[in-house]
């Protein structure tokens, strides 16, 4: 088990992080290259002011008409995404590992708080799953890949939660946790989880078109 742990938290983690950062840069760069080659006009419509105006409205809960129309979803999606990003970055045990490996460390969450945030992520994933199979308009456009990416996202949190509480087989759970984290990192740029990378751009472009050309709100 230790050999496996050392593999997933060592070489495989390197691969995962390289794929994550390299992949992200590659995806964004190739998108921009494609814009430059085929839709150069997009650059001439981009506006910082309207991009930020649009992004700002959409990253604030209830600041848009649609967020207000969907109060439950809005609360769930905002807390889900916030916890999804913040928990792994500010988790004490992760920062301890960064410190040991690279001598860098930063502020950390109390474990009890991180535990709650993990539960929020898991419950959020359950909510999205239920929504996907019960809401007709979501179900209609659901494909297998939607369940795959949801699983990829939830897995590190479920295994992390079980490992933290040392339920079931701790060493196994720990290894699975690290493996699931590696998979999530590597998958982000290359699946529709890439909305993390692209949504600021699509939002900014729509915001610019609406603000600069259409003189209308896009929220």
């Amino acid at each position: 088990m230790h050999t496996f742990y050392n593999f997933v938290s060592g070489p495989l983690a390197w691969v995962a992080f390289i794929l994550f950062f390299g992949g992200s840069i590659y995806r964004i760069a190739s998108m921009l290259k494609l814009v430059a080659e085929k839709e150069r006009f997009i650059f001439s419509y981009m506006s910082w002011r309207y991009s930020l105006r649009s992004i700002l409205h959409w990253i604030i809960p209830f600041a848009t008409v649609n967020w207000r129309r969907q109060p439950v979803l809005t609360v769930v999606t905002f807390t889900f995404h916030l916890c999804l990003l913040a928990t792994p970055i500010f988790l004490l045990s992760h920062v301890v590992l960064w410190d040991e490996a690279f001598n860098v460390s930063w502020w950390t969450l109390p474990d009890a708080v991180a535990d709650v945030m993990t539960i929020i992520v898991i419950l959020g994933a359950v909510y999205f799953l239920v929504r996907r199979v019960t809401q007709p308009e979501v179900k209609f456009v659901t494909s297998a890949s939607d369940f795959v990416i949801l699983t990829i996202v939830a897995a590190p949190f479920i295994t992390g939660f079980l490992a933290y509480h040392q339920w079931l087989s701790y060493p196994l759970m720990m290894c699975l946790h690290v493996l699931a984290g590696d998979i999530l990192l590597a998958a982000m740029p290359f699946t529709r989880l890439s909305h993390m990378l692209f949504s600021p751009f699509t939002r900014a472009y729509m915001g610019s078109e609406f603000g600069k050309v259409r003189h209308a709100r896009d929220w």
């Binding site: 998108m31 921009l32 494609l34 814009v35 080659e37 085929k38 839709e39 997009i42 649609n66 969907q70 979803l73 996907r132 809401q135 308009e137 979501v138 209609f140 456009v141 659901t142 494909s143 939607d146 529709r192 890439s194 909305h195 692209f198 949504s199 751009f201 699509t202």
Partner: peptide, 17 residues
């Protein structure tokens, strides 16, 4: 088509919103 089609298709998370 170019980046718009590609990015829109790959970014949509099928949320139905």
């Amino acid at each position: 088509t170019g980046a718009r089609l590609k990015t829109y298709v790959e970014t949509c998370v099928h949320c139905g919103l």
